[in-house]
Amino acid sequence: MGLAKRIIPCLDVDAGRVVKGVKFVDIRDAGDPVEIARRYNREGADELTFLDITASADDRDTMVHVVEAVAAEVFIPLTVGGGIRTVEDVRRMLNAGADKVAINTAAIFNPGFVQEASDTFGNQCIVVAIDAKQVSAPDEPPRWEIFTHGGRRETGIDAIAWAERMQEMGAGELLVTSMDRDGTKQGFDLALMRAITERVSIPVIASGGVGNLDHLAEGILEGGADAVLAASIFHFGEYTIAQAKQHLAAQGIEVRL
């Protein structure tokens, strides 16, 4: 009895349509955001995350309309990320019906923005997205750094220190994606997840690499995550959210059934 671990389907949105990139290249179309959101809600998704992967200024209005349309019909928490750079961007998304915004690149170029957004709207709605890649050699102690631009550009920032710093700046939650695993279906980078979940006191969402239901359970049991995020295994009907929940429950993980 207590707080349930969450399963969060992630919808990548490009110009109002849901797509999913394999390692952020080779994009396939998977449909209408409202339809998909409705389906996931029926299946028992605990939250939904939308990532605006175009993030160009022209498409920002499109994303606001997507959030409005979904929030008018689906009454579970919604997180929106991608191109959130100013307090005004945060305000627009929250007013459109988002409950949380995920801040990624803007946090790196201007860490004070996280603090400003958190002070203005409360830390409960500020998620900091951390895209991390292992930079240590296989025979060294593991070390990860932050990458931007879909994993292509290095920043030289240590991922663990960054997670702690973002908590101090007012993040209410962290969304940690392994850029090594994203799109590979080989499972989360559990060492990365554990390194971060052991160091912060805010909830952590594990992301990147889910290929089957055991991976979701590992993220929670071994990675220490409070929530697990996945896209393609749900979008293409390999598994339903309900199956995923039952799988976690069978391993003694508390879920909302």
Partner: peptide, 9 residues
């Protein structure tokens, strides 16, 4: 974790 975030009974 704080915030207490998610689905509870």
């Amino acid at each position: 974790k704080v915030p207490h975030m998610g689905w509870n009974q």
